[in-house]
Nucleic acid binder design. Structure first.
Lengths: 335, 335
DNA sequence: TTGTAAGCGTTATCAT
DNA sequence: ATGATAACGCTTACAA
């Protein structure tokens, strides 16, 4: 790998001049410019971004922390961020927090130590205090899916309580009174908030909230199926299933069929997130839209503006969950 | 951010000693060790990995190039790689190639310029020659999903032709003779290979391969639906749909239902990849298993062994596609 | 065991 | 407009 030194030598100019043509920082005569460019070309020179980063304290990289690298939700989020950043030659460095405090902290430290210019964080375990403290450091951050008042201007979030409420109310409005809730892991904020929304809607309908009607899943398909097993085995009757996310919803629908209880026809199922496959299930999944890709784009715009002073507009930070009515929730047929 | 210099000062030892305790490279007296550790603790010192990387030429980072950050397939691959690497304190840096030559090249350059210790590449546009050339450079690489003889020891792949063949033959064996193929983008190697497999099986069954029965999709749900529209509009008759991947398969199943042609009952549909939701569709999706997560783990093991000299075993590089028989392909009912 | 000092490949501040 | 030269934060011979 040739270095800037070799380029300067071949071009017959100083290091400084080469550096100047690289980042157009100051006036350089056309003549030197050409000599430098030719030399670079000839040597197949590639600037070493680690050295640039060390010297300039900037990396043109934005760090992203997500719980996992797979999953439709995180995929959309990462894509939303990456694609908008890429338009401005910014790169992303992604790391997984695996939903545990140690990995999340380590991930943040890693990203900071790599000189990321900013961090976009979707943390499940990091406390609000930690995040607030972090925001005071020298690496700007954007927090996804969490509303922290002290750093509201750095949050891009959606009202999960409201989402859970809307979902539940929709099922109730269709005449279902015997509901169960397949929730996400309770240690996750959004999972808990969605449960709260469920509870609100249920109470509002004059139904007693019953802990036993909430199953704690893990946001993966299999746990949606396990939840159905659980409810059936426990003899808990239900005609409506409110799910913490779409993945568990499809797992639940698949298992319901095995019990000969047809989704939509015999039991209403509603998801959350509106991931891409939700429109392709059978029955198509009624769910709550979570515009995570768009929100990722917004997060990116936020750093573009704050960190790189790039003028971008239409930055919105608080989003509303909306009902996506499809076919998995039908009116309860009177017996 | 405190630096190593401040630590050495506070601890009353030299820079070198601090460095030594950080990476246990040489003998350091217990006494100095403690002084250094205390100083680090007190200052909240975090080593700057950019500086480490520049000085040592190692980064403990492995670069990953994938087409997109979303999608079940890539998600599994990234997770497979990341989780096994993480066990050894190695981090991943991920970048998207967006299936075009420019972005893929830029992605590779970016990763190399970030001093990645190795690269795991899933490229769609980079030529074999480019990859072979790249492999001669000073950054070791692992190539996913492509078998390049010249660098076979760096490839982790699966026989896509065979996969396409197995899928097609399975549908044929169930009595279907009128087949259509919803393929991936033809510029992608795997998509083409799967088409070849389709062709082989069809020919073997004594059926003429008809170009018009192949629709070029883009591996996304929507194009599976579009393919069905296309075939129906064109008046092409079929009872079996062989898909290039699972996503298009579910898109196709959803659209078929709209035409009142029930998947499984009226028309057989087979997917490819066996992503996680394939078992939860209705009907459950018969497909070809592509153990991409496992293969990601293997790629990681390869770099662990080659780059870090970490003894890992059970490294296999060539995988076989296998039939996952579920419910979307049923025997053709005689009229 | 510990310290000194020369890199690593850039950027950036001064001069000129 | 261009060139020295000192950072940037750490590793690593080489000495002591």
């Amino acid at each position: 790998m040739p270095t800037i030194y070799e380029v300067s030598e071949l071009a017959g100019v100083s290091l400084a001049t080469v550096s100047r043509v690289m980042n157009g920082s100051a006036k350089v005569s056309e003549k030197s410019k050409k000599k430098v460019r030719d030399a670079m070309e000839e040597l197949g020179y590639r600037p070493n971004s680690v050295a640039i980063s060390l010297a300039s304290k900037r990396s043109n990289c934005i760090g992203i922390l997500v719980a996992e690298l797979d999953g439709a939700f995180f995929g959309s989020m990462m894509t939303g961020i990456e694609k908008t950043l890429r338009q401005y030659q910014k790169h992303v460095v992604i790391t997984a927090g695996h939903s545990n405090d140690a990995d999340e902290r380590e991930g943040v430290e890693f990203l900071k130590s790599r000189n990321c210019d900013a961090l976009v964080i979707h943390a499940e375990q990091l406390s609000d205090e930690y995040l607030i403290e972090l925001s005071k450091g020298d690496t700007p951050i954007v927090v996804m899916n969490r509303q922290i008042d002290a750093i509201a201007e750095k949050c891009v979030s959606l009202d999960n309580v409201k989402g859970g409420y809307i979902a539940t109310r929709h099922v109730l409005e269709k005449g279902h009174r015997q509901l169960v809730n397949i929730a996400g892991p309770k240690f996750k904020n959004d999972a808990m908030e969605r449960i709260v929304g469920f509870q609100q809607a249920v109470n509002e309908a004059g139904i007693d909230f019953d802990e036993n009607r909430v199953f704690e899943g893990d946001y993966l398909q299999e746990s949606g199926a396990a939840a159905i097993d659980h409810f059936v085995m426990s003899g808990i009757e239900f005609t409506g299933v409110v799910c913490g996310n779409d993945q568990m919803a499809i797992g639940a629908m698949a298992r319901l069929r095995e019990y000969k209880r047809l989704p939509s026809k015999d039991v209403a199922v509603i998801g959350f997130d509106d991931v891409s496959f939700a429109a392709c299930t059978y029955p198509t999944l009624t769910t709550i839209n979570y515009p995570i890709k768009l929100m990722g784009q917004q997060a990116a715009k936020l750093v573009l503006k704050d960190v790189y002073k790039i003028g971008v507009k239409d930055i919105r930070q608080i989003y509303e969950p909306t009902l996506m009515e499809r076919n998995s929730v039908k009116r309860l047929r009177s017996k």
